[in-house]
Amino acid sequence: MRHVTLVEIFTHPIAQKYLTRSGVAHAVSVAYHAFRLSVQHNVNPDLATKAALLHDIGHYEWYTNGQWDYEKYRQNDIHAIKGAERAHKLLIRLGEEPQAAKEIALAILLHTDSYLPEGTIQQRPLQKVVKLADEADEEPGGKHHYREMEYNLAVKKIKELDKKVLELLHSNQFKQLG
């Protein structure tokens, strides 16, 4: 059973504040990639699309002399840490089941290793799906964060994705996840 929909998350003022900062078009695209990848990796599509939608809400705007400074961002950013906390708080506030909120927050925390010391981390399937979905939409120099999408189109796409998730959860393939 789904406690919170993607539309409820997307339209919440807190989500809007941070999704606008990190790129609505990127967030929506990554959510769609996560849906597709969740099927391939047999991961709960509800958790995957929520984590993907919110994966960058921890972004801080790194500027030097009024210009986006990609290198400063790469060297100093901890957006996954901040984003995991923001997402968890938002999801709990919206009424998400606490264990689901935790899994989503962990997937956001581990969607990138840019803030970690050298080495690899062992990711669980949901975390891997979110990482792969994000990578599928990346553009050099962080340009994926600056693609634009009108609010009404984004809501329409999120509603369509909500419907796809619900259909998949009700199918026999994911009956055990609902």
Rank of each mutant, 00 (worst) to 15 (best):
residue 129 V to L: 12
residue 128 K to C: 11
residue 138 E to L: 15
residue 49 T to K: 00
residue 106 L to F: 11
residue 24 V to R: 08
residue 108 I to H: 02
residue 100 A to P: 00
residue 83 G to V: 08
residue 30 V to A: 15
residue 176 Q to I: 05
residue 73 Y to L: 11
residue 141 G to H: 15
residue 75 Q to A: 09
residue 141 G to D: 12
residue 90 L to V: 11
residue 44 N to I: 01
residue 20 T to C: 05
residue 102 K to T: 09
residue 177 L to F: 11
residue 140 P to R: 05
residue 1 M to R: 10
residue 111 H to V: 06
residue 55 H to Q: 08
residue 91 L to P: 03
residue 94 L to M: 08
residue 77 D to L: 07
residue 153 L to F: 08
residue 141 G to N: 14
residue 175 K to T: 00
residue 88 H to V: 00
residue 165 V to C: 05
residue 14 I to P: 02
residue 155 V to K: 11
residue 17 K to S: 06
residue 175 K to S: 06
residue 158 I to E: 01
residue 119 G to W: 07
residue 66 G to H: 10
residue 178 G to R: 08
residue 33 H to L: 13
residue 171 S to V: 03
residue 139 E to V: 02
residue 174 F to A: 02
residue 98 P to E: 06
residue 24 V to F: 06
residue 173 Q to H: 06
residue 127 Q to N: 10
residue 158 I to M: 05
residue 114 S to A: 14
residue 82 K to P: 00
residue 159 K to V: 00
residue 130 V to M: 13
residue 40 Q to A: 09
residue 124 R to G: 09
residue 104 I to P: 03
residue 168 L to V: 04
residue 32 Y to R: 14
residue 70 Y to F: 15
residue 103 E to W: 11
residue 65 N to T: 04
residue 55 H to Y: 01
residue 144 H to Q: 14
residue 167 E to F: 05
residue 71 E to M: 12
residue 155 V to F: 10
residue 149 M to L: 15
residue 60 Y to H: 07
residue 33 H to D: 13
residue 113 D to I: 09
residue 70 Y to G: 11
residue 125 P to E: 06
residue 136 A to E: 12
residue 49 T to F: 07
residue 129 V to D: 07
residue 100 A to Y: 06
residue 41 H to Q: 07
residue 130 V to I: 14
residue 97 E to V: 04
residue 106 L to V: 01
residue 162 D to H: 04
residue 155 V to Q: 05
residue 67 Q to V: 07
residue 105 A to P: 04
residue 31 A to R: 05
residue 86 R to V: 01
residue 161 L to W: 03
residue 163 K to L: 12
residue 124 R to V: 08
residue 102 K to H: 00
residue 148 E to H: 01
residue 145 H to P: 07
residue 65 N to G: 04
residue 16 Q to D: 09
residue 20 T to V: 06
residue 51 A to I: 05
residue 69 D to Q: 05
